[in-house]
Design a protein around this nucleic acid. Structure first.
Length: 203
DNA sequence: CTAAAGATGTCCT
DNA sequence: GGACATCTTTAGA
């Protein structure tokens, strides 16, 4: 089928099967995808350029390491849902759940490269530099107006929040490093970013 | 019930 | 490179 808009990828959300895989694999595959947020008639979009994988059992840095709690229960549920948590008394962070039901796993979205709705993001962030709009896990939730209200939201319905393929996917080099802001689990190289992309939180 | 840490961002020197 | 804001969640008494 020919898409009259010229886009090479349909504007539909990634399927459940994308998320129902190992957390690390899902994390790598999320790079280059587009995070989409609908705010009424406004649509905010940005390419995912940096992520981190967290899972349970063998990962002491994960919120799910100590077993299920009120906060982390979404990580144990159906894959393809948003896990949004509040931290440092003022910040929200967005994760997407992975792994089959009953097995905890989530990918922290650490940075996106804004592509649509930039004016709106600037209002929400009080910044005019595009590079500073969403180059950090709490910066992007502020730019995209993502709060605890979206915790457990289903990302496969194409509603207020979802992830889709990029319009013009380009070849990219993926770099892996130790995760940021944790004190344990530093030996696992589960932070993934697009090499040389200026919109990541740190090089 | 109480205490301490936290998957951070911003401003300052 | 370091201080600090700010408060939920969690673990432990």
């Amino acid at each position: 089928m020919h898409d009259p808009s010229g886009a090479s990828a349909p504007r539909i959300p990634l399927r459940r099967s994308f998320y129902e895989r190992g957390t690390v694999r899902v994390a790598k595959d999320l790079l280059g995808k587009l995070l989409v947020r609908r705010l009424g008639a406004t649509v905010l979009e940005g390419m995912i350029v940096e992520v981190e994988a967290y899972r349970g059992n063998d990962d002491p840095a994960s919120h799910a390491y100590g077993g299920i709690t009120t906060r982390n229960r979404v990580m144990f549920g159906q894959p393809g849902h948003a896990y949004v948590y509040f931290t440092y008394g003022m910040h929200y962070c967005l994760n997407v759940t992975a792994e089959p039901i009953g097995q905890p796993g989530a990918v922290l979205i650490r940075a996106v490269q804004p592509s649509s709705g930039i004016d709106r993001m600037m209002k929400q962030r009080a910044t005019k530099r595009i590079k500073d709009l969403a180059n950090g896990p709490a910066k992007l939730t502020q730019a995209f107006n993502i709060t605890k209200a979206l915790n457990s939201y289903d990302l496969t319905t194409g509603g207020k929040l979802f992830i889709r393929e990029g319009d013009n996917p380009e070849p990219m080099h993926i770099v892996s490093t130790s995760r940021i802001g944790i004190r344990v689990g530093l030996e696992k190289p589960w932070r993934f970013l697009i090499q040389d992309n200026p919109h990541v939180s740190r090089q």
